[in-house]
């Protein structure tokens, strides 16, 4: 008697499926959220500047840095906790209740590895990319709001985007993205994997996944802010 090892290719296949699921599936919501956040940030900052002596191009600078340092990673991951996190919890919970996890187990598949690892790897790869996209969309939103609303000229906004750039902030953004991505997938996997009972428990697990992820992301954001700045 011998134990047949599991095929890595199946893990890879599942990982790519998850990447597509998380990535393509979240493009629209992340794009939309980011454009509006960037626009609102720009408008509000312009309002606060009022007729002060701070140069107008600062609006571009502020929108860029606030998107990169805080809003892109945090808002993206809060939105993804709602979308991806609840999805993961519901998928795994449904598999648990319909005995699909048992079926894998009886075949000899390492269920925790096969069901959880691809999701975490996919999230750690795709979410940091989504966060970059979010930062760009946020700046585009700010640019549009400012120029359409006539708050600042195109040239001034672009000047601001290029001013005082510190590459370290990009690191900060990506570190946050990694940490938040790990938090939201592992919490959601846990909530789904250990579901018992019926559809009420499944709904509850899905909600818990979102709520707990959100709280921990905000907590981690606070801690990272203390460590990284």
């Amino acid at each position: 008697m011998f134990s047949r090892p599991e095929k890595l290719s199946m893990y890879w296949k599942e990982t790519t499926r998850q990447m597509i699921d998380i990535g393509i599936g979240s493009l629209v919501i992340i794009g939309l959220v980011s454009v509006f956040i960037g626009a609102v940030t720009a408008i509000q900052f312009a309002y606060q500047l009022g007729s002060s002596s701070i140069p107008k191009y600062y609006i571009g600078y502020i929108v860029r840095d606030i998107m990169i340092i805080e809003l892109a990673p945090t808002f993206t991951c809060l939105a993804l906790a709602g979308k991806v996190g609840s999805n993961i919890a519901a998928e795994l919970g449904g598999m648990r209740q319909k005995e699909q996890i048992d079926a894998l187990e009886v075949m000899g598949v390492d269920t925790t590895a096969y069901l959880v690892l691809p999701k975490i790897i996919a999230a750690l790869t795709v979410i940091p990319m989504l966060v970059v996209l979010s930062a760009f969309m946020g700046m585009a939103g700010g640019y549009t709001a400012c120029t359409v609303g006539g708050l600042v000229s195109e040239a001034e906004f672009m000047q601001g985007l290029r001013a005082f750039f510190d590459p370290y902030n990009i690191w900060m953004m990506e570190i946050k993205a990694f940490v938040f991505a790990f938090l939201l997938t592992s919490i959601s996997c846990y909530q789904g994997f250990f579901v018992t009972g019926g559809s009420i428990e499944l709904g509850r697990a899905s909600t818990s996944a979102v709520v707990i992820s959100n709280i921990l992301i905000l907590l981690a954001d606070y801690v990272l802010a203390l460590i990284l700045t």
Binding site: S3, G94, K98, E99, Q100, V106, G108
Partner: peptide, 23 residues
């Protein structure tokens, strides 16, 4: 668990709700 895997590759199981993978 590891030793069980050897026997498990010789098992097949049909579940009450079929437990087919939806995806």
């Amino acid at each position: 668990t590891k030793q069980r895997k050897a026997i498990r590759t010789e098992m097949g199981m049909l579940f009450q709700g079929s437990a087919l993978f939806d995806s």
